[in-house]
Amino acid sequence: MTAATATGPAATVRGAPLGRLLGAELRWVLRRPRTIAFLVLFALVPVVIGAGVAIADRAGGPGRGLIGAVAGNGLVLPVAALTVSLALLLPLAVAMAAADALAGESAAGTLRGLLVAPVGRLRLVVMKAFGVLVVAAAATLVIAVLGVLCGLVVVGWAEGQMVTLSGTTLGFGEAMGRVALAAAWTTGQLLAVGAVALAVSSLTEHPLVVLAAVLGGVIVSGVLAAIPALSWLQPYLLTTGWSAGADVLRDPLPLDGLGESTLRALCYLVVGAGVTVARMLRRDA
């Protein structure tokens, strides 16, 4: 130790412990008012759907589709809420987190502080990706938990069971497993969105550019999918697989759609991570 001191700079520690960095990032993400606001918003999604279904159920017969399937069948609510939110709200939240992670920090002048500390550039990407992961996971968790609670309390449950779209019934335990699967799958899709958003975030200093890019991407994907002449494009679009979330409500559980969309998400994740790292290793801060 003393010898190390004597040899001077060569004995320097290479970086702060990674766990400490991740902890700092976690605190930063969860202290941010925007994150809290989004989580509250996500807590409201199942409540609003549940209340709406309960009212509509009293007024008339059940509606069609996934929301209709919630009526009297509360354990479907978390899955329906996740599917509805995945269309726009969840990607928006993740894009926001990714926008703040690099572009926002750069614009606020706080990225310099971290780089000078120093946080190595690769570690910085890991740290920031972790922050986005936290937001994605927290958002789906809030929807899933509030969805289950609200489903049981507001909508009521089908004798403690979940009625699948296929007309079979699942016990409470298996139903919880299905909700957990939906949440995990949704988080996976969101991580792909987050990785791409982080890549955009690493390329710009304007957080709004990231939001616009992600929302634009989601909306344009939807439009492209609706054009029959461009059907060849569909297998490349992340959003193509987003209807697979409803698969957890089928019985026997079909894994094809969930698996394929997860693999596609993984590819997007890898592309996003590669671009982010390549860019951040050289980015002027």
Binding site: A16, P17, A24, R27, G113, L114, A117, V119
Partner: peptide
């Protein structure tokens, strides 16, 4: 504190 967490020379 956030910046201090990133300081390599600072013990937790």
């Amino acid at each position: 504190r956030r910046l201090a967490a990133a300081e390599p020379l600072l013990a937790t």
